[in-house]
Design a binder for these strands. Structure first.
Lengths: 358, 358
DNA sequence: CTGAAAGCGCTTACAG
DNA sequence: CTGAAAGCGCTTACAG
């Protein structure tokens, strides 16, 4: 079988079939300019008969807009980002924008490549959850090249011209810690992936830029203890890599301490599931013998027994707001307006895994 | 502040600055054709100084490839699709392809629009988890227009020229049902969203096309009962909308039956979490008084007590294979080769929520 | 309302 | 190895 026509029909083919100029055909098909009813009908019919599809590439080259936004996350499979991503698509699609997605796997080089490629593909703007908030040169360059950037979930150092939509991580972790303090706990363990930032974070300073959410949560925990006049003990901060198994081990180390904590706070949903498992396996009763607090309000946290007390992050809304922020900026009105900064509140949801220290 | 230069520099600007032709500049920057070392250096330097970014739109218009694949799913926030999506990006990115993502929210019209837009944006191919497998005209048209399509997770009627990557849903549900039968259960409840297909599925026939996974699982359940010589009772098939609350109610209805089932099978992770909750709230002891089987091996299924017996779907691999399939086809070699069909096996993971009927 | 012509920013034969 | 010219498929002033 050989096909007669090689490529798909172009506007020229349609114009020829409809016996009008390409300008008129383009106007009828693209819905811009003035076209008589009669011409429009003929063009539309011809287009349908030929199976014409507009070539958006050509159009975008002229109009300067692709109606595409780039979205860069570290891991789409993480429910937190999956939800944020849905928030983004839920606002982008109705507005006529598509989403060009890149998953960096927390690799900065991948992020740099993504930003370059997206910029070359002429996306109208980029929403990015930076892999390493301390590395922002590529983002700064992107903005300088005229591509609006919205920072999602992480503020990046050296990138002051971007809108930001984040969650108040330090406050959230502080709330969780205070909740445990109020229940009488004095030795509160932390399972975190930001343990190596311990020394840096103990020093005074409130800069948020350049720090990962996990680091900010660690700081929230540290400050809450300090504010309560309690000593901060480094052995109570257990560092884990970002996976369930590592969190399981980290929690295990806390429980094996000569003087183990009476409560454990986990700064993320992945770490929480690993740590919860470790506590379960230890045989300690929750909350009678040990209290546990997780992060992210996922369905499973109400399915386990006892149900988990958690810090609930507005993940979907985070994406929604980031999407709106970007579309707003693309709308022209605020094109060069000064950067907006939105910080959403997380809320502590107290359930059955926390109780007074016995 | 006003900017001097309006747009970003083009190849012409670079060529001028490097004192070469645009052809040479293009060759040096694009990495094609022959360029002398000397010319290349000058071009690269000029490009760097000017902050030049290739315009991929122009390039794609000529080369005919955007190095972009479209991915259409019904819900990115569903862990199943989030994982499959990661499988896709994990194979696409290293191969130099980006992903244009659309979330249809199970709406066919949204899917039709997505396919049109993607086609107009000249994606190189599309991977789609069809919202309604019985509706495939738009997909057929897309293929006819020359855009390769890979069907993910659902085979669509009227679309025979597409590669497909699916999971053997009927077999999987059959396995789960047989597991319960072997444990002595005779009244096995099903929580499904395909309940309205009950009559149709009871009739003989093995067509897979046009059916949602949930329908195929319902059929697997029905056939397993028939094969065991057991009567199929419609009241044991509880229909739920696709959300936790509805599944909770559906499971509740089963438990409230005059003669309630001694085991419950849920055909999906969302339904399973709702149903598990309902069983918990009923006060019935799992597995002593009732056995429960879920679908999708998510982390929470090992966190609940008793740990849930589940049918584990290879979600990540599903995406991986779909991505590979598409890239393979784009590679030219198999351009017009006949459609490939891959059907992956799901595996039953027996844990503590199933036991012999007492 | 309509069309001829220019042009968006590249790549690709083609000739040298 | 290099460059002048054509052309990918559209949209946009501009003149009528």
């Amino acid at each position: 079988m050989t096909t007669e026509r090689t490529g798909s029909p172009s506007l020229i083919d349609v114009a020829r079939a409809a016996e009008v100029s390409t300008a008129t055909a383009g106007r009828a098909l693209g819905g811009y300019g003035q076209v008589s009813e009669r011409a429009r009908e003929r063009v539309l019919r011809a287009a349908a008969e030929l199976g014409y599809r507009t070539n958006s590439l050509a159009r975008s080259m002229i109009t300067g807009s692709t109606h595409t936004i780039g979205v860069i996350v570290t891991d789409v499979a993480n429910p937190f980002f999956a939800m944020a991503l849905r928030g983004i698509t839920d606002v982008a699609h109705p507005a006529g924008f598509e989403v060009l997605l890149v998953n960096t796997g927390r690799n900065v080089e991948a992020e740099q490549r993504a930003v370059t490629v997206m910029s070359e593909k002429r996306v109208d703007g980029i929403i990015v959850a930076a892999a390493r908030p301390s590395r922002g040169r590529h983002l700064k360059q992107t903005i300088d090249a005229g591509v609006p950037v919205v920072l999602l979930d992480r503020e990046v150092s050296g990138v002051s011209e971007a809108d930001t939509v984040t969650i108040d991580n330090e406050h959230a972790a502080g709330e969780a810690t205070r909740h445990l303090l109020e229940l009488g706990h004095r030795r509160i363990g932390l399972v975190t992936e930001a343990g190596d930032e311990f020394d840096r974070l103990r020093r005074p300073g409130n800069r948020r830029k350049g720090l990962l959410p996990s680091a900010l949560r660690l700081r929230g925990y540290l400050r809450a203890l300090e504010d309560a006049g309690l000593p901060v003990e480094e052995s109570l901060v257990a560092t884990a890599r970002y996976d369930r198994e590592s969190a399981y081990e980290a929690a295990g180390r806390l429980l094996a301490l000569p003087e183990p904590p009476s409560a454990v706070l986990c700064t993320d949903n992945v770490l929480a599931s690993g740590a919860y498992r470790a506590v379960q396996d230890s045989g300690l009763r929750i909350p009678e013998e040990i209290s546990v607090v997780g992060f992210d309000d996922e369905p499973w946290t109400t399915l386990v027994r006892p149900a988990l007390t958690v810090v609930e992050q507005p993940d979907y809304e985070l994406g929604l707001r980031a999407g709106r922020q970007l579309l707003h900026r693309l709308d022209g009105g605020s094109g060069s307006a000064k950067p907006q900064s939105v910080r959403l509140r997380a809320t502590l949801v107290v359930r059955d895994s926390t109780a007074c220290r016995r």
